[in-house]
């Protein structure tokens, strides 16, 4: 795993440390929820994990075509992925509009998020699964793992307007559903 900034480790600031999982398509809701639920003196860390499966697949597919020379798309996808991670973190930082650390990681997404946020006071994530109806499938593989394994308290929000037929659920688009998990 490669980190571009160290996570907050100072024990005094642990309670104020808010980690935000920045993920494709869902990061806006996570940033908004962090802003409305974090304590006023919170210190923010934006956390993005690059999915290396795409670059690896392209690299492997190229290597599987025996004999070709010098046109491996894996390196190009790596560069694109690095730029994308930086762009996402930049966009998230702009939306947050508060001083923040940026953490850019590689590897298994869910494990990276759980490990990096272990000492946080709060981890904010957006649902990464099926958004069409409430229920367990609204969490994807990474989200499910994070909710099940996170050491710190976790705030889970819908990335967009929650499904309308939510019995007793939140009605306001982008508002967190106040589901807190802690171990």
């Amino acid at each position: 795993m490669v980190s571009e900034a160290d996570p907050v480790t100072d024990s005094d600031s642990t309670a104020r440390s808010v980690f935000i999982w920045v993920s494709e398509g869902t990061w806006r809701a996570a940033v908004d929820a962090a802003l409305s639920h974090a304590p006023p003196d919170a210190s923010f860390t934006l956390l993005h994990v690059t999915d290396d499966a795409g670059p690896d697949a392209a690299h492997g597919a190229y290597r599987g075509m025996f004999g070709r020379v010098g046109h491996d798309p894996g390196a190009r996808l790596d560069a694109l992925a690095t730029a994308q991670a930086a762009d996402l973190l930049e966009a998230a930082a702009r939306r947050l509009g508060r001083p923040c650390d940026r953490l850019s990681m590689h590897g298994n997404t869910e494990r990276a998020v759980v490990t990096a946020s272990a000492s946080a006071g709060l981890l904010v994530i957006a649902r990464d699964g099926d958004q069409s109806r409430p229920g367990p499938h609204s969490l994807g593989r990474a989200g499910r793992f994070i909710v099940d394994h996170a050491i710190c308290p976790v705030l889970v929000v819908w990335p967009g307007p929650p499904p309308r037929d939510t019995p007793g659920g939140p009605r306001t688009p982008g508002k967190p559903d106040r589901k807190r998990h802690s171990l």
Partner: peptide, 15 residues
Amino acid sequence: AKLDVRSRPHVYACT
């Protein structure tokens, strides 16, 4: 990346 969607299914589809 530009559309802010996860790339994995689409890259796997290419390969």
